[in-house]
Design a protein around this nucleic acid. Structure first.
Lengths: 164, 164
DNA sequence: CTAGTACTTGGAGTCGACTCCAAGTCAAGG
DNA sequence: CCTTGACTTGGAGTCGACTCCAAGTACTAG
């Protein structure tokens, strides 16, 4: 069998877009398994490892704390998650969290769009990520009082003008 | 005019789901304007303030650092953002960031689904939040080697099996 | 042999975002 | 009048996630 290509820590750091220090740190806190070393002690990475680290980077982007990433690595590794029912549960939970987070983000996007579109009245597109909100198709809403807030969509209904 | 209802810090903390300390902290770092006080010095909040704080909480959920939230409050306040071209620019930028973040999240969701659906082949539903990704409708992909990684979607294409 | 570079390690420092605390004020109840 | 409870303040402490550093080793080129 031909040898897989291997990479230095510097290379994969650059490739993935995180610092070498961060990668070493992940290893230090055992978020990543100890990487193989060359004879001189330098770390060697292969595609498999890169994929794993990339997954971490991806999860990080979603705001997940490092401590919660471990289970994902277990899954990422190679296994069939069905072998670990607890883990499946965990994954499902996290999936829900992420969906909620997407909804949050979408609300912010909506908020921004609303602010950017002040007066334009261009409210029709498809954006129903969350089923929780999407209250009234209320067009020209006024600044803050819209229902862009999670968990209280419908009940935010102000009365008078904003102070002024 | 009848008085708007007002609330204590404890009430709104509970309502919004963050700690009183956090609210005071936001005020301390001037992320929030100094709240009005009663004669005894206690903070009073009205709906308007609650909306603002709720916006912060919402932005926080999206992983935005506190320092970046200021512009949103300026917008939230009452103004027409068109009055502040820089701010509009900032909003647009952030909108893009969020869209990207949603894509990241969606990838994680896809990853989870993929892991959960191992062998199930149930790939059809409607989830196209981001227009950036949605690469191939590639069904039964193998564990890690999938293109669930942001920024390198198409180019991560492994050849051999995952080590084993 | 020396210089340069690419790594290694353990540990210290930083930064953001809280979180906790002690001391103080005020209002109401017994 | 004294206690209790809800708040105030400034400041200290914590925690997660890095980020930086000094000292050491290994290889490479001149």
């Amino acid at each position: 069998m031909r040898e897989e290509p291997t990479f230095t820590i510097k290379q994969i750091a650059k490739q993935i877009g995180i610092s070498e220090d961060t990668i070493r740190y992940y290893e230090k806190i055992a978020l990543l398994p100890r990487a193989d070393r060359k004879d001189n002690g330098h770390r060697v990475y292969r595609q498999e490892d890169i994929d794993t680290i990339r997954l971490l980077a991806c999860l990080k982007k979603t705001g997940m704390p490092l401590a919660e990433m471990q289970p994902f690595l277990a899954v990422s590794a190679d296994a069939d998650p069905a072998d670990y029912p607890e883990l499946v549960e965990h994954l499902r939970n996290h999936r829900e969290n992420i969906i909620a987070q997407i909804a949050s983000l979408q609300e912010v996007v909506d908020f921004i769009d609303m602010k950017l579109d002040v007066g334009k009245i261009r409210r029709d597109c498809s954006d129903d990520v969350s089923e929780a909100m999407t209250g009234e198709p209320n067009p020209n809403v006024s600044p803050v009082e819209m229902a862009f807030f999670p968990g209280s969509a419908a009940r935010v209904r102000k009365s008078p003008a904003t102070g002024k």
